[in-house]
């Protein structure tokens, strides 16, 4: 099991890098802030904490946690040359990609599970009279971990496809900018572009098609997948477009958001692996 040997060594190495844990700390801070916010409310509502955590946490901090943990995983070793020590052992380049993925996913999972554990304690301490929905909390944790995993795969993929730290960083920032900020938050994103083009061309389209375009980024899929976590009657859910009805096409159903996230797990890894297999490690 050469993948395991790569992963073990890499985990031992990366867990000692303090920077890797910093974004997770930021996530914990946001979490404490949201619980504290509810503690000031007359009727503390657990779902609002999760809702804020999905929005701000999902949009900004989770990608940051994953990208920072993994964007240098392979490109950093190529720049420093230590990948030559790694590949002098009976290990293939594919083993390196998957070993790195295992190690960095482990780091991110541990960090986020710790953050969610802190969340429970914070809820007990800060807002003792708020009822905690453990089932929903677990579902939220699961969906968030899948989202984080997709971003780890993206970061490892970018790292496998680039030869230096600076290019890996440019790739990671570029991805975050396009598939996060532009895609889901800025008013000039692909949703508006598609809408504009279809209108100009005089083609009929439905709102669900635009919703699908929104969901194609990891962040869009994560946000629209919130219907899996929240109860049907949670108001903001429908206002935001998530939690679609029974009659909608499959590609905007809640479960399909998981398929899109899995796509973001598979595709960047496949591309990164393909690039690394063909690279000259001079």
């Amino acid at each position: 099991m050469n993948v395991v040997s790569v992963a073990k060594r890499d985990f031992l190495d990366v867990r000692r890098a303090k920077l890797v844990w910093a974004p997770a700390l930021l996530y914990v801070l946001f979490m404490l802030l949201f619980f504290w916010g509810q503690s000031n409310s007359a009727e503390p509502e657990f779902y609002w904490v999760l809702w804020n955590l999905a929005g701000l946490g999902g949009a900004l901090v989770i990608p940051l946690v994953a990208l920072v943990a993994a964007y240098l995983s392979i490109a950093g070793e190529r720049e420093s040359g230590s990948i030559k020590y790694q590949l002098s052992l009976p290990v293939s380049r594919t083993d390196v990609v998957f070993g790195k993925l295992l190690a960095r996913s482990a780091v991110v999972t541990i960090a986020l599970l710790a953050a969610f554990a802190v969340g429970i304690v914070a809820a007990w301490v800060l807002v003792p009279d708020m009822s905690l929905e453990y089932g929903e909390y677990a579902a939220f944790t699961g969906l968030t971990l899948l989202y984080a995993l997709a971003y780890v795969c993206i970061a490892v993929g970018i790292s496998a496809a680039t030869a230096s730290r600076s290019r890996a960083m440019a790739g990671a920032i570029g991805f975050f900018f396009v598939f996060n900020l532009v895609w889901n938050f800025l008013p000039v994103g692909p949703v508006r572009m598609v809408e504009f083009v279809l209108e100009r061309a005089g083609i009929d389209y439905t709102e669900t098609l635009l919703e699908f375009v929104f969901s194609l980024s990891p962040t869009g899929a994560y946000l629209n997948g919130m219907g899996l976590v929240f109860p049907e009657d949670f108001g903001p859910l429908h206002a935001a477009g998530a939690g679609t009805g029974v009659g909608d096409p499959f590609y905007v159903q809640d479960w399909f958001m998981l398929v899109i996230l899995l796509g973001w797990v598979v595709l960047p890894l496949a591309l990164g692996r393909w690039r690394l297999e063909r690279a000259d490690l001079g």
């Binding site: 000692r16 420093s80 040359g81 230590s82 990948i83 020590y85």
Partner: peptide, 13 residues
């Protein structure tokens, strides 16, 4: 067994 050139060892190990 290989001693590569211009390779750095893992500084945190």
């Amino acid at each position: 067994g290989v001693l590569p050139e211009g390779a750095t060892v893992y500084e945190r190990l």
